[in-house]
């Protein structure tokens, strides 16, 4: 168990170092910053934007615009006001809303246009924010130690019970349960840190 705790702490320290490096790179508009950002949060951002816009190609376009804006605004980023993840996701949200507003009068593809288009502006905003919240949780999962993130995946995505997880992984049931609580607790801490 102590070994697990040490590993989790080491992973957490590595993640924090990566974030600090990324923030420094963004602040000085280092050319590598975008690649780092893409590697760290790109998949989540694309998932969120695809969910909001209902169209992967458009989401890719908006992702590119988002990353460009993040890079351009990097020198002004203030970690005291919001975490990097929150800041980046808020920019993605704004660009997604821009895209939705632009699209409302003339949806390109009624088959793939999301139901957001059928609502008024505030309704769409609410829906966009609900998705933002969910994808923020998803992004935070990437900050968990791998073993804990995988445990949550097996439970909440694969739908396995803790006993089934124990059988499948060969871990003692008690360890699975202990680690489940640790994972939930760590995720809660991350959520609290992200809260405005």
């Amino acid at each position: 168990m102590l070994h697990d705790v040490d590993d989790a702490r080491a992973q957490s320290r590595r993640a924090q170092r990566r974030d600090r490096r990324l923030i420094r790179a963004l602040r000085r508009q280092d050319p590598s910053a975008i690649a780092q950002l893409q590697e760290r949060h790109g998949a989540m951002l694309l998932g969120y934007l695809t969910g909001v816009l209902g169209d992967r190609a458009t989401a890719e376009d908006v992702l590119q615009v988002t990353l460009t804006e993040v890079w351009q605004r990097g020198p002004g980023y203030d970690p005291a006001r919001a975490s990097l993840l929150t800041w980046v996701m808020m920019i993605a949200r704004s660009r997604a809303l821009d895209q939705l507003r632009r699209r409302v009068p003339e949806p390109h593809d009624p088959e793939t246009a999301t139901t957001l288009l059928d609502r008024d502006a505030s309704g769409a905003g609410t829906e966009v924010d609900a998705l933002l919240d969910r994808w923020q949780v998803a992004a935070l999962l990437t900050q968990l130690p791998t073993a804990e993130a995988e445990l949550l995946r097996l439970r909440f995505y694969r739908g396995l019970t803790q006993r089934e997880i124990a059988a499948r992984t060969g871990l003692p049931l008690g360890t699975v349960k202990m680690r489940m609580v640790q994972a939930l607790d760590r995720l809660r801490t991350l959520l609290d840190e992200e809260a405005p």
Partner: peptide, 23 residues
């Protein structure tokens, strides 16, 4: 912890599918 469980149940399937390889 209960709200965390709720939020994990609410995650879109795609969110699990696009988690980076490290997770």
């Amino acid at each position: 912890l209960a709200p965390v469980v709720t939020r994990l149940y609410e995650l879109p399937e795609q969110a699990w599918e696009v988690l980076p390889p490290s997770s």
